[in-house]
Design a protein around this nucleic acid. Structure first.
Lengths: 202, 202
DNA sequence: GCTATCCTGAAACGAACATTCCAGGACCGG
DNA sequence: CCGGTCCTGGAATGTTCGTTTCAGGATAGC
């Protein structure tokens, strides 16, 4: 009986996601979303609800399609420190070149440009933070077991520290930070965790 | 001959600065600024120009009154690693408690919520980044000279890395991150730089 | 092919936005 | 006390915002 949608909702959500990602929740208007998606306002509201719901859906899509795969990859790699290094390398490449250069991470951006009194958003950001920290923790645990880590390193603290470092990379990339500079900084930091560092004096 | 201003411009700018700091450039309206300052629109526009100029002035005031003193303190402390630790300790305290808890750093916030196509803002942010990095570099240099640093540590890379870590702290503090957790993460990271770490195996 | 359903397009809503304007009044130098 | 200057308050500008409404058309089951 019903008529069917004349567009692909997820495709539209992806356009919205990119708009919010690049410009932030406050600056990306519904008007801009209609232009980017080619949809009419009516279809937009009928499908996603209001702007808040649309932004949340876009944020969830970002987690699902962008953040989570990277975390999963880090979790499942199994090489330890080299996996972490490659994680950062890919991150910096994605942030400084290609289609999304200068956009930063939508989740980090959300820390400042989304409504941080909204409990749903706070929960989402905390959840993502915990998951990334856990993924990092897992990789570090493997590194420890394989003797890649210097003896004084706390796996828990290092995981949290590396996630904060990633946040810093994401922030600076929005202002056009140099990829080489970021990568060498990360490399040096990871070098501090490495066993060869402590062994250097032997 | 002229009439004089019936208010203190810098006091008004401070109110505006706090508003932009807390809510971001996009979400803080001129209307809200007039309420916060008690000024009329006319006086606001006559004194500061438009919203862009007001935001820039507020950002410059933040640099002058908030960021620069902290940098100067770090530069002039002269103790090396303990100075860096205290810098982070004070940062975390300011971000997680007191009047400005959950506001983050206005300069870090500006990376995402300000117009990052505006060359004046980009220059400001780059300048501040360089200055904080230099201050950190100076403190690390002292640490090196005083034998506080592990031998494998690059002073340049560590300076950049610690600044990125500070960015991460600022970001997470906006979502209500726990002060103790942040501090222990920072402490552990600084521990990696310390000489006692590499010496541990002796 | 009929009908009930629901999607689409475009117009319209009030509220909030940044900005401008102007009359009235306050001030300072004389 | 007077004059010119400039600040102040409030109203008014046009634009853009998010959201709603509604008539018309497309669709799938019967």
């Amino acid at each position: 009986m019903p008529d069917i949608k004349h567009f692909d909702p997820d495709n539209a959500l992806e356009r919205a996601e990119r708009l919010f990602w690049q410009h932030g929740a406050a600056k990306a208007s519904i008007q801009a979303v209609t232009v980017a998606t080619g949809l009419n306002r009516s279809s937009l509201y009928a499908t996603f609800g209001g702007k808040r719901e649309l932004y949340l859906a876009a944020l969830r899509r970002y987690v699902h399609h962008r953040a989570r795969p990277a975390q999963r990859w880090l979790t499942e790699d199994g090489r330890g420190l080299p996996a972490i290094r490659e994680f950062f390398s890919a991150l910096i490449t994605a942030r400084c070149s290609g289609e999304h250069a200068g956009w930063g991470c939508m989740l980090v951006n959300a820390h400042t440009d989304a409504d941080h009194t909204d409990p749903e958003i706070r929960t989402l950001l905390d959840e993502h933070h915990r998951q990334l920290r856990d993924a990092m923790h897992g990789a570090l645990q493997i590194a420890r077991e394989q003797g890649q880590l210097a003896p004084g390193v706390s796996v828990e603290a290092a995981a949290e520290g590396l996630v904060l470092l990633a946040y810093g990379v994401n922030v600076r990339s929005r202002n056009g930070a140099d990829a080489d500079s970021l990568l060498s900084t990360v490399t040096a930091t990871l070098g501090l965790l490495g066993a060869q560092h402590a062994a250097e004096r032997d």
